[in-house]
Design a protein around this nucleic acid. Structure first.
Lengths: 124, 124
DNA sequence: TATTGACTTGGACTTCGTCCATCGTAGGAT
DNA sequence: ATCCTACGATGGACGAAGTCCAAGTCAATA
């Protein structure tokens, strides 16, 4: 556990945190100016491998990193401003996929992305 | 409707077709050697705007283009080889999100990605 | 002290996509 | 038939996001 890794882990802390790698780098640089981009990517990759952080690919642009890995949840994204909230739907999305639609796959998880306008964007 | 656009539209035809822009370019080049990358991107963008094709961002790498836009469906992706199948779950995923979890958003759609191992990858 | 190994660094490189100035061409106007 | 015009196509430059690699740093161990 080096100073660099600690800073990356600290930056990724809290609820509804969904930072891009560049944002993580920017905030880490505030605390530890000499940290490098490669180290941020390395550390994020390790955190993802360890299951401490979830990678969220919402739009084909930069991936986002979500530290809320221990409580299963899905994401609600504003189509206007891109804001992301963690949400907890009722029911198991996996149960909705009948075996006739599984094509022999061993289906392990279901990832749901809800999209819509947030209160701020809806009124504009 | 130019020859270039027709070729792009023809390449994107069929069930379970999920090509990247580069793959579309490669197949279009087979039929019309002088077609350019920019034209492929322009045409794909128009098809998406028209609602004829759906953009699928599965992994933060290249986007894929799915011509099966008129029948609502979700995607099942093999964690091993990346193969993609269109699937039709029962039930409406939107219904699983209680209003207490909507945070005032006007939720418009739910996109579900199932992940698991396909029969080929499971046996290896 | 010298060695070792793990971690970090910066920069080059790749991939994916967008932008822009220029060119070609089809259809209408003369 | 010829010229004009406007839209679409072209290709190359550019930019964002991410990966890779050789070299440097540092701490623990022998």
């Amino acid at each position: 556990m080096t100073a660099q890794r600690r800073v990356v882990a600290e930056v990724l802390d809290g609820e509804h945190v969904h930072l891009t790698a560049d944002e993580v780098l920017a905030r880490a640089t505030d605390r530890l100016p000499e940290i490098s981009r490669a180290t941020v990517y390395n550390t994020l990759g390790e955190l993802v491998s360890l299951g401490e952080v979830i990678e969220v690919a919402t739009d084909g642009r930069a991936k986002r990193y979500d530290p809320n890995a221990h409580r299963p949840h899905q994401h609600l994204i504003c189509s206007g401003c891109g804001a992301i909230r963690d949400v907890h739907p009722g029911g198991d999305p996996l149960a909705d996929l009948p075996s006739s639609e599984r094509f022999g796959f061993a289906v392990a998880e279901a990832e749901v992305t809800y999209r819509g306008l947030c209160p701020g964007c809806a009124t504009v």
